[in-house]
């Protein structure tokens, strides 16, 4: 565990909590893509099945349980409790265009052709693109609430910090996981445009809105 990995995890946790609190406090999930949140719930579910097969550390187990529980709570708030505020008309990304290719790729390119390993690989690939419905929704409506941009910032920062963690681990531990690294690079690149808008607009006190 190095500082980049730890701050990455905490950044991820911050993103998840920010989103939950935003929905809970405003009693509304307006502007949030339920499809992205469904995909993240699927990501955590398929990745953390190893909770049943191996124990790594109390930290590892607790964080996995927290991520899974929070992602299911978020999906519950969007599709059940605050369903009336869910902006389904703007959440029109076709998720099958992500899930099907990603599913196929995880069968073809993985570390080991075993059910758990294929599901882990599926979750790594799916996570890298799971934010697309949310970004698509923002590009359709042309704007995002500031709190939503904070959520996206921490969610993007988390994988960027993991990239530094992997560079660190390569040099100091000789560890290198090509699948995680390539997917992590793709994931981080998808946020670059957003990072630019976040720094040039939101951090200067302006609302994130896109030119028509």
């Amino acid at each position: 565990m190095n500082i980049f990995r730890l701050t990455g995890d905490l950044s991820h946790l911050a993103a998840i909590i920010i989103l939950l609190l935003k929905i809970w406090k405003t009693r509304s999930c307006a502007g949030i893509s339920g499809k992205s949140q469904l995909l993240f719930a699927l990501v955590f579910t398929t990745r953390y099945l190893d909770l049943f097969t191996s124990f790594i550390s109390l930290y590892n187990t607790s964080m996995k349980l927290i991520y899974v529980a929070c992602s299911y709570a978020t999906v519950y708030l969007i599709y059940m409790k605050f369903k009336a505020t869910y902006d389904g008309n703007h959440d029109t990304f076709r998720v099958e265009f992500l899930v099907v290719p990603v599913g196929g790729l995880s069968f073809l390119v993985n570390h080991d052709f075993s059910p758990l390993e294929i599901l882990w690989t599926f979750s790594i690939y799916l996570e890298s693109v799971a934010i697309l419905p949310q970004l698509f929704m923002i590009s359709k409506t042309g704007e995002a609430e500031t709190i939503t941009t904070h959520y996206l910032f921490f969610l993007g920062l988390y994988r960027a910090l993991y990239l530094i963690n992997w560079i660190w681990r390569y040099y100091f531990e000789g560890f290198f996981d090509l699948i995680a690294v390539v997917a992590g690079v793709v994931q981080t690149i998808l946020y670059c445009d957003f990072f630019y808008l976040y720094v040039t607009k939101v951090l200067k006190g302006k609302k994130l809105s896109l030119p028509a």
Partner: peptide
Amino acid sequence: DPGAADHDEL
């Protein structure tokens, strides 16, 4: 197994 994924990471 050098090829196996590291399940310590989240």
